[in-house]
Design a protein around this nucleic acid. Structure first.
Lengths: 201, 201
DNA sequence: ACTGCAACTTGCACTCACTGCAAGAATAGT
DNA sequence: ACTATTCTTGCAGTGAGTGCAAGTTGCAGT
């Protein structure tokens, strides 16, 4: 059961369709010709929209290629983490939180996969990608400072947030290495294990 | 004794001076008026150079504000790490490596401090900053894959690189929190301790 | 169906970051 | 002093991104 109910009215549907069309066009054209040889005008035209409208949907060309969107974590996962759950052990709960994010961030697996492939062929995109990643870490930190009330920790938000970000990225990389089998959250335990291994060296 | 010998010939000296002038002008003007209300033309003029020359020194306005430059790690630190030293224990050696980077990355303390302050007042800069940070992590990974020959590790380069990046950032943050007392490397042990604390939760 | 409303799209005009090129100035080596 | 090299600069151009105001389209109530 999807947490976000699919849109019923025409407005919402069109919005989603247009967004999708823009991402699809951007990824396809950039894949064919390279990031710097595709203009926003071309992407917009290919998606059947005006250039101006493109910028109603995305802040930049790069964002469209990466399909970057607002992150809205499953409220249930969020609530549970903030209230000190699900297990009460921080590292374990962090794992659950990151898994929730990974599920939310990838509504469309193929799109994410394409984005990750373009990320390696177009290094410039990495900039926007890590900026997004940083925003997610910021989100983690907010949740942490709330959770702190329910269950204090001697470790500061920055460190925990960065570790959460590390786990997210590490499992995404493992997922890519596996040839995009299943979903990224599958590789989370592996990421945690690697981290422990290093620290216990 | 500084590892990089100061430049003797006029060319090198001017280059450094012009670079400095551009950074100084960029930081000052952006601090006064905000990132989006300062043009590259104004920065260049304030530094006594042409707009075109600005782009011979920096790839973007943001880079100048942050004073981003090529990273060239102390060859000695580099060689020692690659050959499996200084202690042979990965986490400890990583700490030494990061300390080396922190020293190299901050040739001018005040400049770095100003950059870090602007980083909080101008969120857009964070994008370029993390992109730079990512480049450094990439550098770490190269060193790791070389070190691997001398001293293999069961942990993969990605994870180690990210942990090194985490330590670098964590100690920079602690340094900022301390009101920029001394230098960032001072706070490295603290960063490691925090990380261990979290993992051993 | 009609109407008024709000959301969305679009064209237009504009600013400015950034680039390639070619000419000119400064500097280093001999 | 002569020359090769390196660096600066102006110029002309591309294209990303923005504010605005005028249209268009879907929505809700009557």
């Amino acid at each position: 059961m999807p947490t976000s109910t699919p849109p019923q009215n025409a407005r919402e549907r069109q919005k989603r369709e247009r967004r999708l069309a823009l991402i699809e066009a951007a990824q396809r054209l950039v894949g064919e010709r390279g990031l710097d040889d595709v203009t926003v005008e071309e992407i917009s035209f290919a998606a059947g929209l005006s250039t101006r409208t493109f910028f109603n949907y995305f802040d930049s060309k790069d964002d469209a290629v990466l399909g970057i969107q607002e992150i809205d974590l499953d409220p249930e996962v969020r609530a549970q983490f903030v209230s000190g759950g699900p297990t009460g052990r921080l590292m374990t709960d962090l794992e659950a939180l990151v898994a929730g994010f990974l599920k939310d961030a990838a509504p469309n697996i193929e799109q994410v996969e394409r984005a990750m492939r373009l990320l390696t062929s177009e290094p410039r995109l990495m900039q926007r990608h890590v900026a997004w990643h940083q925003r997610v870490v910021g989100e983690f930190e907010e949740l942490l400072s709330e959770r702190r009330k329910a269950r204090p920790s001697p470790v500061d938000d920055d460190t925990i947030g960065m570790v959460a970000g590390l786990l997210m990225r590490s499992s995404a990389l493992a997922w890519a290495r596996s040839g995009y089998e299943g979903d990224a959250a599958t590789h989370l335990p592996e990421a945690v294990a690697q981290l422990r291994l290093l620290l216990d060296d």
